[in-house]
Design a protein around this nucleic acid. Sequence first.
DNA 1: TATTTACCTATGTTATAACATGTGTTATAA
DNA 2: TTATAACACATGTTATAACATAGGTAAATA
Lengths: 67, 67
Amino acid sequence: MDFPTAVKKAREALCLSQEDLARKLNVSFATVNRWENGKTTPNKLTMKAFYTFCKDRGISEITIEES
Amino acid sequence: MDFPTAVKKAREALCLSQEDLARKLNVSFATVNRWENGKTTPNKLTMKAFYTFCKDRGISEITIEES
DNA sequence: TATTTACCTATGTTATAACATGTGTTATAA
DNA sequence: TTATAACACATGTTATAACATAGGTAAATA
């Protein structure tokens, strides 16, 4: 699963809007929106923070392909 | 002072971005953005909540013209 | 090697649009 | 009067663009 899809799936599984997720992750709405639309990809630290966020909330379908 | 200007002044006095203010007021970024750009005006309750928010934070230059 | 410069990418911020939905008001019918 | 229908307006959500800035990488230089 590519990163944009992973973000969208996780977000929807948690019933959050892009703005909600941005608030939870302490990033701007624009950033989450760009992630989901494949415009940008977060750096490794932010990526890891995102997956930890998911893991902590029981979102497990999401996996990362190491880069 | 018109409402769009009042919002912008108050927000800048508090060193908040539109997104920050939206979070504080529990509305979306788009709503604050539309307020500042005169696209929409909140209803009386929301308007009052905004002015209370300002008052609580020492923003006093802002006044409302009763409608 | 260490430092600095150049470049690319991600992000924050603001602005804006489209669409669906919610809300409030007004008018009309029962 | 009460209920409902119609309409206008505010909001939420998503998408996108432009601009400034921060951050990292890589190359060139001291």
